[in-house]
């Protein structure tokens, strides 16, 4: 039984809790099923997929985290670029990256296809970790240690762009990350890494 023809501007007299037409029912059912697919994809990707933002998450004192980063950099330093140490930690280890206005400290040199636990945190304000040109993005929050298990599957000379507003020098905040093969040779340069980006929509 249909309600009397009326628009959304008219008050509705009487009982309007009436069964919907079959067409509407079908659409609601399809939409509901699709919502379940959308929902299921996320746990499914945790189980089968290779890219998840889970990580090991702890609170940390920003000063203590920075001190740990500096000690870590001193321990594994292999070079220097623009006053920032290049650090080559052993595969499988915990590695540290501190964001501070307006730089990323230190420069990490990782081996391709090896897993590391990358600890991200900030010394002062919020920053944004954006690995360019791969486009991998994480929020870096002072007081929180985000320990992400990363395995670089492509080599190259990467940039870390800050993509969270952190003050007037925000746009100058660019860091560097290098991925080499097991012999220490750079497996690809930045230009090749840029090429991988080309096919994206």
């Amino acid at each position: 039984m249909l309600t009397k023809v009326h628009t959304g501007l008219d008050p509705v007299p009487g009982v309007w809790w009436r069964p919907a037409h079959k067409t509407e029912k079908i659409w609601v059912a399809i939409a509901f099923a699709w919502c379940m697919v959308l929902f299921a994809m996320m746990p499914l990707w945790h189980w089968k997929g290779g890219q998840n933002p889970s990580g090991i998450r702890t609170r940390v004192d920003p000063q203590a985290f920075y001190a740990r980063t500096v000690a870590f950099a001193a321990q594994h330093q292999v070079g220097m670029d623009r006053g920032i140490p290049i650090v080559a930690p052993p595969p499988g280890s915990d590695i540290y990256l501190t964001a501070l206005s307006f730089m990323w400290y230190p420069i990490l040199q990782l081996e391709k296809d090896k897993e590391y636990t990358l600890h991200l945190s900030a010394l002062d304000v919020n920053h944004g970790f954006s690995l360019y040109p791969l486009n991998v993005n994480f929020q870096v929050v002072p007081g929180y240690d985000y320990g992400l298990r990363v395995t670089p599957t492509a080599g190259g000379d990467f940039r870390i762009i800050c993509n969270e507003f952190c003050g007037i020098g925000h746009h100058t905040m660019v860091g560097r990350m290098i991925v080499v093969d097991a012999n220490g040779a750079t497996v690809a340069d930045n230009a090749t890494a840029t090429l991988q980006q080309e096919g994206r929509p």
């Binding site: 623009r82 920032i84 954006s130 486009n135 993509n163 507003f165 100058t172 230009a191």
Partner: peptide, 23 residues
């Protein structure tokens, strides 16, 4: 999708510590 950040003044990264080569 190319990794250009939001809320960012200079996509040429002229004053940045390291160069960023945009496509």
């Amino acid at each position: 999708s190319f990794g250009v950040p939001r809320r960012h003044w200079d996509n040429s990264f002229q004053d940045a510590m390291f160069d960023v080569e945009m496509s």
